[in-house]
Simulated scan of single mutants.
Amino acid sequence: MNWISKLTPPGVSKMFAKRDTPENLWVKCPVSGEMVFNKDLEAGMYVTPAGHHMRIGPDLRFKFTFDGEWTEIDLPPVPKDPLKFKDDKPYTSRLSAARKKTGREDAMAIGVGHIGGVESTVLVQDFAFMGGSLGMGAGESFIKAAETAVKRKTPFIVFTAAGGARMQEGCLSLMQMPRTTLAIQDVKDAGLPYIVVLTDPTTGGVTASYAMLGDVHIAEPGALIGFAGPRVIEATIREKLPDGFQRAEYLLDKGMVDKVVHRRDLRKTLARILRTLTKRPGSTPMIEGPDEGRALTAAGAGEDDD
């Protein structure tokens, strides 16, 4: 304690004492570099003023997608470390760290609820869990979600976000690509809609399988969508890629994506598509969220968002 501290009255010292500031009070926009107040970011559905759609987890996805409450389905159990894999640390340690970070067992989450009044099964891929990598757990969860949709006779909606296959599971990870493809076929054989919402990033084996097999493909603005990354492609072909290559808007222009939709409009866009595909154009569900309690009429549902 220095001499100034000794002479300063206790009340004055407390008044000017250094206060701890929460680390997540401000968030830097990756596009503009602007510092955004966390409460403002939350109110804007985690889209920055510059329009950058930040990555969000399953809880927020379900909240922003369903009309109100939803039921979360338990994930099926899978072997923890089938190959006893170890690089600079054991695979089991990486799994434990990812589970502690996200509070989830694996990269997938399944929810059942209503979107625009239409009961739907929604699968969300969480990039925060080991890059949303496709492993046995993710594959089994996808199949469980598809089976749930068939059993309940609901549309099946998948929000993709992945860096590819999970290397720690080797060929067992790659086997999930054909397995998920067969599960999608079961959904289509049942006459149920399969809708894919591509979020940032969707790459690797996920893009090469269930991410590109939807009846309708929607993407969030600016989402990176592809198989190999742009840097890998440039290094391989030794040519400069076009501006915006593999971004949602570029793929929309090339016909790989049906529609690019802002996050604030995603629920009503899905509601309109679901009512059309399930032949329920006359319903008037309540759309909650940023415009809480606003009724979405059949007439309004038919209008274009652009």
Rank of each mutant, 00 (worst) to 15 (best):
S96N: 07
P77D: 15
M177C: 11
G300Y: 00
E169P: 12
G244W: 02
D67S: 13
M167E: 15
F127A: 05
Q176S: 10
A162Q: 05
G11Q: 14
P281W: 01
Q168I: 00
I237V: 15
Y210G: 01
P82C: 09
A43Y: 06
W26S: 01
K63T: 03
H262C: 05
L266H: 01
A43S: 11
T199V: 09
E303I: 04
T92A: 09
T92N: 07
M167G: 11
K28Q: 13
A183P: 09
K18Q: 12
M175F: 00
G113W: 11
P76Q: 09
M108I: 00
L241Q: 08
S96D: 10
V118T: 09
E140N: 14
A223T: 12
P193H: 02
A97E: 14
R166K: 12
G33S: 10
A138S: 14
G191C: 03
G244K: 03
D186S: 14
S133H: 12
V112G: 02
D186H: 14
W26G: 02
T202A: 03
P30I: 05
T160D: 09
R294W: 02
G111V: 08
F37I: 04
R267S: 07
T199E: 10
T181D: 12
Y91A: 03
A219S: 11
D20M: 03
V158S: 10
T236M: 02
P30R: 04
C29L: 06
V187F: 04
M15P: 00
D81C: 09
I237T: 13
L7W: 10
M35I: 01
H114E: 13
M167L: 11
D106H: 09
K28T: 12
I218T: 01
R247G: 10
A299M: 04
L75H: 05
T284P: 00
E119Y: 00
P77V: 06
C171F: 08
L224Y: 13
Y194C: 10
F227T: 14
L182E: 13
D106K: 01
G163F: 01
G163S: 13
M212D: 05
T203A: 12
D189E: 07
P155I: 07
M136T: 15
R19I: 09
P201A: 08
R94V: 04
K268S: 07
Y91Q: 02
E169F: 15
S133F: 04
E23Q: 14
Q176A: 08
I225N: 06
R61N: 09
F142S: 12
